[in-house]
Design a protein around this nucleic acid. Sequence first.
DNA 1: GCTGAAATTCTGGAGTG
DNA 2: CACTCCAGAATTTCAGC
Lengths: 166, 166
Amino acid sequence: MVRFDEKDREILKILRKNGRITLTELGRELGLSPASVKNRIDKLRELGAIQGFSAVVDPSFLDRYVRVFMLLKLKAEDPEVDRILSKFAVLDNVQTIYRTTGRTQALIIAEFEDMDEMKRFAGRLKHSLGSLLEYIEWGTIYDSIKECWTDTKKRGGSHGHKGGHI
Amino acid sequence: MVRFDEKDREILKILRKNGRITLTELGRELGLSPASVKNRIDKLRELGAIQGFSAVVDPSFLDRYVRVFMLLKLKAEDPEVDRILSKFAVLDNVQTIYRTTGRTQALIIAEFEDMDEMKRFAGRLKHSLGSLLEYIEWGTIYDSIKECWTDTKKRGGSHGHKGGHI
DNA sequence: GCTGAAATTCTGGAGTG
DNA sequence: CACTCCAGAATTTCAGC
């Protein structure tokens, strides 16, 4: 068991909103030296409190024009499910996979170049889960109001891209 | 309209997986000087391709033990909806708000200290949307396999926290 | 968790194609 | 316009306390 105090919580909150803040600036806000902040962040990573850092990116700039969520209705609670989903987690199309309660048992968020690629993905998902899967309910994500703790307000100006970010 | 090439795409991909990589290291991987990488990242932020940087945090370390997704079934496609959802987007409980197609029209992911706080949130949501809302379908998120492009594998060892991260 | 010094990185301007 | 180079500034990092 490791110590974990209010300043650690504050670090987590600030890093969620600004993942690239400097240790120096973070230290100013907390009243700590940069070295202490580094020690704490290293500790938080060790603990698993911080699992990584990520940029919030508009997928249309990667030519991913189809973004979807999928709700998986599973027939059985087989430990195999997690193993299979972990295989899909490594794909670079997949942003998020959660295990959930409710009418469905898993939530996947992923992005694709087109509907065709999405359908192939869904097909492989069905094939891999086989009899464990009852059905997939899905929909497209056509707008993001907030994402990963980052407000995604629209700024003015197009940049000539085809589709996406209005 | 601004130029946008393969190296920019590569920057987006790398930054999604490692949001705190240094400009120097990023430059090494791309065959560019750190200064060029900086210029490109500044440009990508201007364009809205990069909307921010965020740490992927285990919410139980913030005493948020209840994590949920909510699917909003709306009665009408009123522009008011976006305005109302934007108000909820500023709350620090809210991780994500998407507008979607499908059976439901919005997806919210949020985290709370307990069920009570979650219910108050859902209540306010219902109250704010009023007659625009038909129903909310929801479930709890009890495990994360991948999140914001970050594999969230379980590492060994507990740290004495109550609940959460097994 | 702090200090202090060394190593590394960042940053803006000048110069190049 | 995008790039590199370069020097000064800032940050990171690590040892020792």
